[in-house]
Amino acid sequence: MGNTTKSEIIQSISNQNLNLSNQDVELIVNKIFAVISEQLSSGGRVEFRNFGCFDVKTRKAGMVRNPQTGEKIEVPEKLIPYFRAGKLLKERINKEK
C-alpha cells in the first residue's frame, strides 16, 4: 500500500491531455480544491455525481481530557469537514480489479 500525491495525479492528467501543459493542469486542480475548501468553510456542501460529496458536520461542544496530564479541556462546538463516497465509487472500489 503506497501513497499517491497531488503532483503525481497532476502529472498523470497532463500525460492524458497532451494539449495542456503541466502548469495549466496544476493551476486548475489547485483551484478545484480551493473552491471546495472555500465552500466547506462557508458551511456549504459540494456534490460530484458518481464520486461523492463533501460536506460539513457540526461537532457538539464537549469536554476532553489531556491523556498525559489528566487535565480537562472544554472544546467548543465546531464544524468538521467530511466526505461521503457516491454509489458508483463505492461499487468500483469493491469490484474485482
Binding site: 492528467i13 491531455n17 486548475i28 460530484f48 472500489i93 480489479k97
Partner: peptide, 27 residues
C-alpha cells in the same frame, strides 16, 4: 477543459484507491 480535468481528477483518485493506494492532496 476545466470540466474535463475535474472528471479526470476524480477518475485518478478512484483508480488509485482501487489499487490500494492512499491519495494525498496537500492542504
Amino acid at each position: 477543459i476545466i470540466s474535463d480535468i475535474l472528471s479526470d481528477l476524480f477518475e485518478e483518485v478512484c483508480v488509485n484507491l482501487k489499487q490500494d493506494k492512499n491519495v494525498k492532496i496537500t492542504s
